[in-house]
């Protein structure tokens, strides 16, 4: 049975229209006009226990709104949403006890106190038995390499250390589902890597279901086999990452370098993307095209010095995808 199921979930916000200036502010005291903003628009999916799902979309695509609905702090305007077999917002407290949530941009740690004290408060809030708490704390401290700073006040920590502590805090009570809203935002390369490896491990070894929103595609590549892509509140794609690559056509990039500028070159087998004179970049439109085909077409006598073929980069795949914006692909196999 699905651990999370969404059917035609919608969320519409009513935002008061603000009129400019003092006169506008006074008028709006008496009569208010509202604009309706549809942040989530008819989204359906089902997530099985133990899955790791990346929820991807540009700013304002409705990612956080969806997370907030799943965690029970926002009520859907329409549709049905079930988390662990319950409606999250009407069972907020029961739901909260069984999930863990990390907001990349909001801290849940007590600012002035050592990290350990925040953990200890969570022990009370979630009523974690002493032995399990000790066990989890020891395990998380080792896995996230927090030994050096659990006794330091939160305000002295670097962002990377703080984020590791936030994640540990969300896992102390062994939640069945872990929601992460942009957990790697603002982290440096090393810290991102630690967080990603850890989340993948938690998902693999503990079987914790992970739902993660992000802008960073590498997060999804390393943690989430499954990808849900949204834009403008609508579902664009739901399926495996590699499937997305195939669906969108993996366009390989070919770089040709010349000893002397051969002038403009047009080819049938490859489309020119950028021309820097000595170096020219092409996209191979067709999966079957080989370098040999290109070279044959190019012919000899161009003073070619180097050739480089690059596999498509996922960022580019997704950028193309958003730019073309199909209505709904729904490619879940």
């Amino acid at each position: 049975m699905a651990i999370i199921s969404a059917q035609g979930v919608e969320k519409t916000f009513r935002q008061p229209k603000r009129k400019p200036g003092l006169a506008g502010a006074i008028t709006s005291l008496f009569s208010r006009e509202f604009t309706e903003v549809r942040a989530v628009n008819g989204i359906s999916f089902a997530i099985e226990p133990g899955e790791a799902v990346g929820y991807l979309g540009p700013n304002g695509a409705g990612k956080s709104t969806m997370i907030k609905m799943m965690t029970g702090i926002l009520v859907p305007t329409a549709g049905t949403l079930q988390v662990l077999g319950r409606e999250p917002h009407s069972n907020r407290i029961t739901n909260a006890a069984e999930i863990g949530v990390v907001f990349g941009q909001r801290s849940q740690l007590w600012w002035d106190l050592p990290v350990r004290d925040s953990f200890d408060l969570n022990r009370h809030i979630y009523d974690i038995p002493a032995h399990r708490f000790a066990e989890n704390l020891a395990r998380l401290t080792t896995m996230l390499d927090m030994g050096g700073y659990v006794d330091r006040p939160v305000r002295q920590l670097s962002l990377g250390q703080r984020m590791r502590a936030e994640i540990a805090m969300a896992l102390l009570h062994d939640p069945k589902i872990l929601f992460l809203d942009e957990p790697t935002i603002g982290l440096d390369v090393v810290a991102k890597d630690v967080v990603r490896k850890f989340l993948a491990e938690v998902n693999r070894d503990r079987g914790t279901t992970i739902i993660l929103t992000t802008h960073d595609l590498v997060d999804i590549e390393e943690i989430c086999p499954r990808l849900i892509m949204v834009d403008d509140g609508k579902l664009l794609f739901d399926g495996e990452l590699k499937h997305l690559r195939q669906t969108l056509g993996s366009r390989r990039r070919l770089k040709l370098e010349f000893g002397t500028d051969p002038g403009p070159i047009t080819l049938k087998t490859a489309a020119l993307v950028t021309d820097d004179g000595l170096a020219k970049h092409f996209l191979l439109e067709n999966e079957q095209t080989s370098i040999l085909d290109v070279l044959t077409e190019l012919g000899a006598g161009h003073d070619l010095t180097d050739i480089k073929l690059e596999e498509p980069n996922i960022e580019e795949v997704i950028r193309t995808f958003y730019q073309n914006k199909p209505a709904a692909v729904g490619a879940r196999p």
Binding site: K68, T71, I93, A96, V101, F103, R106, S107, I125, Y126
Partner: peptide, 12 residues
């Protein structure tokens, strides 16, 4: 600021 959401996410 909406930070109250952090408290709503906990069983309290």
């Amino acid at each position: 600021t909406g930070d109250v959401a952090v408290f709503l996410l906990k069983p309290l």
